[in-house]
């Protein structure tokens, strides 16, 4: 596209204010048109900020996937924060994050405002919802299987996984306590008992 070249040409000396605006606007557009999860956003953001603006290294966002997934938060939000921070510091991160959240906020507020007027009790609408919930159950099963390989790699990790399921399903424990327990158990096991850190899955995959 011809306009890409124009932006490339002056991207070397864009003012900070314009850079911040572009971070906001590009993420606003990305979030508006990408429906669903965070990984689609990663691909589109890489396309925009690498190919169009040359503000990130080629493949930088994919390389940072481990970091984006490690830090607590939504994938989409963390991608925006990372990109914004790398390009324009804390202000850039804030503007990119605002851009990524804004479309959801506008659309959902509009829907939620008219939510009570929708014929939600109608049996056909209920049927459609049951259909979507079924698809979501399938989606979650597929996500579970895909996460399985990188999350469960040795017996202790299997034990933690099973203990976590039992704690929630049978004892109805608060998931916050479980995350807290895992936060203590990991360093105690790896650094005090095992005295080595099992190799992270991402590193092995990155080497391939």
């Amino acid at each position: 596209m011809p306009d890409n070249n124009e932006i490339n040409a002056d991207s070397q000396n864009v003012s900070k204010a314009r850079m911040l605006w572009l971070l906001f606007w590009e993420f606003f557009k990305i979030a508006s048109f990408v429906v669903g999860g965070g990984f689609a956003i990663l691909i589109v953001a890489e396309d925009v900020f690498v190919k169009k603006y040359h503000w990130l290294r080629d493949g930088e966002l994919s390389d940072m996937l481990a970091l984006i997934q490690t830090v607590p938060g939504l994938t989409a939000g963390n991608i925006a924060i990372y990109t914004g921070y790398r390009i324009a510091g804390t202000a850039g991160a804030l503007l990119a994050l605002t851009g990524v959240a804004m479309p959801s906020f506008i659309v959902i507020t509009a829907i939620a405002a008219g939510f009570s007027a929708l014929p939600l009790d109608h049996y056909i609408v209920q049927g459609a919802f049951t259909g979507v919930r079924t698809a979501m159950a399938g989606l979650m099963l597929v996500a579970l299987v895909q996460l399985w390989k990188s999350s469960l790699r040795d017996p202790l990790q299997y034990a933690v996984f099973i203990a976590g399921i039992i704690a929630v399903s049978l004892f109805h424990l608060n998931p916050g306590w479980l995350i807290g327990t895992a936060l203590i158990l990991g360093p105690v096991w790896c650094m005090a008992i095992l005295r080595r850190i099992p190799k992270a899955a991402e590193e092995e995959e990155a080497q391939k």
Partner: peptide, 22 residues
């Protein structure tokens, strides 16, 4: 090493919460 040791148990625990949500 600290962050990697955290992830060592956090990943399976997170997966357990995905399973219960499923």
């Amino acid at each position: 090493r600290f962050v990697r040791s955290l992830m060592y148990t956090l990943k399976p625990m997170t997966l357990a919460l995905v399973a219960t949500a499923l």
